[in-house]
Design a protein around this nucleic acid. Structure first.
Length: 315
DNA sequence: TCTGGGGTCCTAGGACCC
DNA sequence: TCTGGGGTCCTAGGACCC
């Protein structure tokens, strides 16, 4: 899943198979994950961050934005004081270090936070955004992954500065809506607000079998477990769902999905189970063994006991 | 050689409605 | 022989993030 900075010196990276990691460094210590611990630490850190601003946005288990525009004047000295205070509080309460990026927008702040790790602080002054980005490889831009990097490289574009030079009409023609985003980002422009995102859009569960299988009893048993888990999460969040999907990855990594939208939103585990089984069964005609199965609940809606839905009135 | 799990967003085609 | 335009929803696939 991930590796310490010590292990990284041996070339071990996050999401690397442990067999490969072992080959790179046989003396490394391998330890299973402990998600309840990480979640608890995350919640503690997030509440610390929240206390520094009224505008907070959690991005993942270990990343968040805070907008402190109205809290301080933007002198470098003042910024450094706040950053130091945050680091100290997190270190004292959770014995963790963190890296901080400060900039006039989220895009640049995020890239800045990644600039010096671990335990870094990178401040990009107002007006220096584009300049800071220009020398960095395009892959550093949020939203540019392996595929886009390859396409850009083919076009002779390696750095964000080179990307910023490409005219907007060309970017639009080449990448559509994404082209506008790339153009703005490369120029250090991002006008999205720091805001907390409440609603979850989907609940997903996936399981990779220890060995590829065609055994339907194993496959259904694992699917049932995932449904139990996902359904519990659905109910806990006070949600209902309208769409049930399944996903199958065959031994050759070929991956397919099937999903079905119900006529009415539901909280019924049995309804979800029935639909998932039905969708899953459609894949059994394939001769290949299955490596991974997954399921998802989507079209989530808050359950409100007092208010009846329109369709209920018409029934 | 080997490729995790939980998410979001976008695209494109087709069905269907007025 | 020729058969609109605007819109929504559903489904499948894919890129990307941490």
């Amino acid at each position: 899943m991930t590796s310490s900075y010590e292990a990284r010196k041996f070339g071990i990276k996050s999401a690397m198979p442990i067999s490969q990691a072992y080959r790179l460094c046989p003396s490394a210590i391998f330890t299973p994950p402990n998600f309840p611990l990480y979640t608890a630490a995350s919640e503690s850190v997030m509440s610390i961050l929240r206390s520094y601003s009224d505008k907070f946005e959690q991005v993942s288990i270990d990343e968040a934005f805070i907008d402190i525009t109205t809290k301080i004047n933007s002198s470098k000295n003042e910024i450094e004081k706040v950053a130091a205070a945050i680091k100290t509080e997190i270190r004292e309460k959770e014995k963790l270090s963190c890296s901080i990026g400060v900039a006039s927008n989220k895009l640049v702040a995020k890239i800045a936070s990644d600039f010096k790790k671990p335990d870094g602080l990178t401040i990009i002054e107002n007006g220096r955004e584009k300049d800071f980005l220009s020398q960095l490889p395009v892959r550093k831009l949020t939203g540019v992954g392996a595929k886009t990097e390859a396409v850009l490289k083919e076009m002779g574009v390696n750095t964000i500065g080179e990307l910023a030079e490409l005219p907007l009409y060309f970017m639009e023609k080449q990448f559509g809506k994404y082209g506008y985003y790339l153009h703005d980002s490369a120029n250090g422009i991002d006008e999205t607000e720091v805001e907390e995102n409440y609603e979850v859009k989907s609940i997903n569960r996936n399981t990779t079998f220890e060995e590829d299988t065609k055994d339907e009893s194993i496959i259904f048993a694992v699917m049932d477990e995932m449904i139990e888990d996902a359904h519990a999460a659905l109910i806990l969040a006070g949600l209902s769902c309208k769409t049930v999907g399944v996903r199958v990855r065959f031994g050759d990594f070929d991956t397919h999905t099937k999903e079905k939208t119900l006529s009415e939103t539901t909280t019924s585990k049995e309804a979800v189970k029935k639909m998932a089984r039905q969708l899953l069964r459609e894949f059994f005609s394939d001769k290949r063994k299955i490596r991974q199965i997954g399921m998802r609940l989507a079209h989530l809606k808050e359950v409100d006991k007092k208010q009846k839905t329109v369709s209920q009135y018409f029934r």
